[in-house]
Design a protein around this nucleic acid. Sequence first.
DNA 1: CGTTTAACCGACCGAGCGGTCGGTCGGTTC
DNA 2: GAACCGACCGACCGCTCGGTCGGTTAAACG
Lengths: 204, 204
Amino acid sequence: MDKNLKRMATVHRMQTTGLELFYKQGYYNTSIDDILKTLGMSKGAFYYHFQSKEEFFISIVQQLVFRKVYSMMIEPIEDQNNPFHAIETCLDDALQTAEFNEMDYGFVLANFMNEFNGRNEKIMKFLMDTCKVWEVNIVTALQRGKTDGFVERHVNSEGVAQYIISSYFGIRTLMVNGNCKILRYNYIQQMRNYFRSLSPVVIA
Amino acid sequence: MDKNLKRMATVHRMQTTGLELFYKQGYYNTSIDDILKTLGMSKGAFYYHFQSKEEFFISIVQQLVFRKVYSMMIEPIEDQNNPFHAIETCLDDALQTAEFNEMDYGFVLANFMNEFNGRNEKIMKFLMDTCKVWEVNIVTALQRGKTDGFVERHVNSEGVAQYIISSYFGIRTLMVNGNCKILRYNYIQQMRNYFRSLSPVVIA
DNA sequence: CGTTTAACCGACCGAGCGGTCGGTCGGTTC
DNA sequence: GAACCGACCGACCGCTCGGTCGGTTAAACG
């Protein structure tokens, strides 16, 4: 038991450090030696715990990325009444994290999807799955919003979910240039405009 | 003169082939030897014409990417009356190109911005500049649209331009998963919704 | 005709990469 | 206390990559 705990702790430490470096420098631009140097560990330790660099990364996606996307991008909109309001708050929070240069897991996803596209199908599948889960959950929230009268009944929920995710991926790409604060402000403002066009008309 | 022409032709051929491979496989995943093999040329020829891989890429951005972004993403919206209609048509055309797996230069930009972010500041600058020119031109089109009565006067043109580019970058990221046709259709549909919220209210 | 030169060739270099493997060492078992 | 094992070490291997350099060739020139 104690042994098992130690093993898990080590593996987790490796994954956390790995993700941090992969996120900052990219997968292909980060060598295993880079990670090991940061960890103060050796090649032997790495290949004792993981089969290959690829398997290591996949374990990171499953153990860290997927869970974090779930807890940060999905759970906050699950039990809210007004899906538009929930989504807006959630994305604004995520962008705020991004502003302070910390890892924002929505973007981690987009980043990696761009890096692996056409280069590693196996890894792409895991990333796409995570993305799809996000999309499906937004659709669910929107559908519930329709019955609750927050969302116009005729809107195409899949389309809206895709548009939301798209704009989020895109704004994060633009934010790498700096000016994060104003980009974030403008983004939320425009998202509100967009959501307005999807809301039932208020009869004053 | 004849010599000069030949030189230019060779350089151009190298740039075109280089961009194609860089686009398909990524910059860091494409070796100079890959490109030279496709061209049927030698290392010597490459380093005769270009100082380094980096300089080679920058020349591609300046000579090909910037010009193509200009002619495909900017010019089509320059002399149109209704900016929303012009932008919609332009982006729909670009997505159609993307659907058939050809190079779509809006995405080329986003792709490379993702790849070089945090890895090569010099190259990033050139890409960001191109992006900024695109943004500025959308802003110009929107401002003109205000005076012409197509755009609500109170809208934040910079914010709208950023939101448009963001959503475009993002949808292209999603399109790498396939389902391009439906993604494109949904995207244009949602963009129309969004634009509706920015148009002057029609008094029936 | 010989000389020069732009354009190109391809063997080679050294650094860095992912991955292997023989070995070490502290703790547990019997 | 001998045998064993999980966790980890680090030298090493094969390979790829960006970049170098001493040629070669064909056309232009005088």
